[in-house]
Design a binder for these strands. Structure first.
Ligand SMILES: NC(=O)c1ccc[n+]([C@@H]2O[C@H](COP(=O)([O-])OP(=O)(O)OC[C@H]3O[C@@H](n4cnc5c(N)ncnc54)[C@H](O)[C@@H]3O)[C@@H](O)[C@H]2O)c1
Ligand SMILES: NC(=O)c1ccc[n+]([C@@H]2O[C@H](COP(=O)([O-])OP(=O)(O)OC[C@H]3O[C@@H](n4cnc5c(N)ncnc54)[C@H](O)[C@@H]3O)[C@@H](O)[C@H]2O)c1
Lengths: 221, 221
DNA sequence: TCATATCTGTGACATCATTCACATATAAAA
DNA sequence: TTTTATATGTGAATGATGTCACAGATATGA
């Protein structure tokens, strides 16, 4: 007798696929490239310059800007500073965004020490771990017991959390965070988290990313 | 006088966007879910069960399988083992795939110790770092100087590399790897790497992923 | 100041992805 | 064995995303 898996009904509904739209992702890519050009001392560029750098067509660049009502100068291209400001405007880039991290294992420790987050005004105000031996104050960020989640979330008005706990605990921890008012989760555990519609989950699965690289190398050869 | 960035011509051409197609990504997601169901003791499931778990519609699940010529049983659903085998077949999942990692900083160390890679038959045979003080044999994987890249790549027939070096060095290191025959790169540095057409680059930008979570939380609120 | 080459901005078009709908097969029940 | 309810498999319809092509604007140089 085979055991058949039927649909399980959860209190929370699954969220729709493709949370992170490609056009938005491209906006982030453009910004990355623009910062690179600026660092090299440029002030202006053309859609095809940016396209070349970002790995998309010039048409795509112009279309994206058109869709977001970002304007350049006819014949004169785009001023990098203006463009950066416009993009930051679209992506609602704020001054300081507070967040927390749960799971201070290998990946959690790396993320907490990642300086680029801070440069981009994304501040991890505290991290949490179930293991008391990890609850010290190294890494520049306090490592706290989960009991303190509510305090910290309330105190810093935290809406976003990074999840770096084992797959088996990920959904439980996520549920707890959502109950405490978290609205966005960046999840590194290899599971598809379920969450209510008003909560954004971005699952990133590094194993899958690596395996798809392998897939394409085998396809080419 | 403004300094304008014109197109720079590289020896290598940029590779086309959307390297990792969404339908392939879904295949990985399905596999992840199937392994989960199997662990829970199920043998069979229906397209809507899998869809619910993977966060896509049942139609999408069936269409994907149809596109890849994966068959189930009319009325009877899909046998999980058969499905897993079919998916592994499509993604050319091999027995052992050797790879290397360059850059034993915070993220590099986490990745080298990530056990799921080994479980999925993706073996990091060696890692490399420019800093002599990191060239010890901790972490279960030897940390070698870059001079040994060629030896190791040849010896283990390595085609895939993980890049975890600072953004400023990423393109240089990538070029060197490509010269040595590497055909696939998983890049963690926040730059869009340029590579010849027959080399697959999967750029993953954790900062962008986090920022897009923030974007959507602000949109909802 | 004028002429011109060239880059932007955006509808029209094409391509790709997803959903719909139903014919078909079959597991399970009578 | 026959019936029936239900899940699959896949073209056709819809919707989303990306490319093309060109009108319009303007920086640049004569
Ligand atoms: N290490 C990597 O490179 C890597 C890469 C991709 C994904 N991941 C995923 O990230 C997650 C963490 O991986 P890791 O390698 O850091 O593992 P790890 O075992 O090193 O760390 C997990 C940490 O989470 C803590 N923890 C366990 N249960 C908890 C709970 N309920 N609440 C709070 N903390 C809890 C543990 O004490 C530990 O410190 C896993 O899901 C893993 O699959 C890791
Ligand atoms: N730490 C994170 O959580 C995180 C997250 C996302 C992306 N990244 C990116 O990953 C990369 C590494 O980040 P990190 O935090 O581990 O930095 P890190 O400074 O801790 O590590 C970088 C390592 O690369 C080595 N290195 C430098 N130049 C090299 C070269 N030419 N060849 C070989 N090795 C070289 C350094 O010796 C160092 O060990 C960066 O590009 C960073 O932006 C890091």
């Amino acid at each position: 007798m085979l055991k058949i898996a039927l649909v399980e009904f959860f209190i929370v509904k699954y969220i729709t696929k493709h949370i992170i739209r490609n056009d938005l992702k491209r906006l982030f890519t453009y910004r990355l490239c623009l910062i690179g050009f600026k660092r090299k001392g440029f002030d202006r560029l053309y859609s095809y310059t940016l396209g070349e750098e970002a790995g998309v067509s010039a048409d795509q660049v112009r279309k994206d800007f058109s869709n977001y009502k970002i304007k350049g100068n006819k014949k004169g291209g785009y001023k990098i500073d203006d463009l950066l400001r416009s993009i930051d405007d679209v992506i609602k880039h704020q001054d300081e965004q507070y967040m927390i991290l749960v799971g201070m294992g290998n990946i959690g420790r790396a993320l907490v020490q990642y300086k680029t987050f801070k440069l981009r005004k994304m501040i991890i105000v505290a991290s949490f771990d179930i293991d008391p031996s990890k609850q010290s104050k190294r890494f520049g960020v306090p490592v706290l017991p989960l009991e303190m989640l509510e305090d910290i979330i309330k105190k810093f008005h935290v809406h976003v959390a990074i999840l770096a706990v084992p797959a088996i605990s990920a959904q439980d921890v996520a549920n707890r965070l959502i109950d405490l008012g978290i609205k966005g989760i960046l999840n590194f555990a290899p599971v598809i988290l379920k969450a209510p519609e008003d909560v954004i989950v971005n699952n990133i699965n590094i194993g899958d990313e690596l395996e798809s690289v392998i897939y394409y190398t085998q396809k080419v050869m």
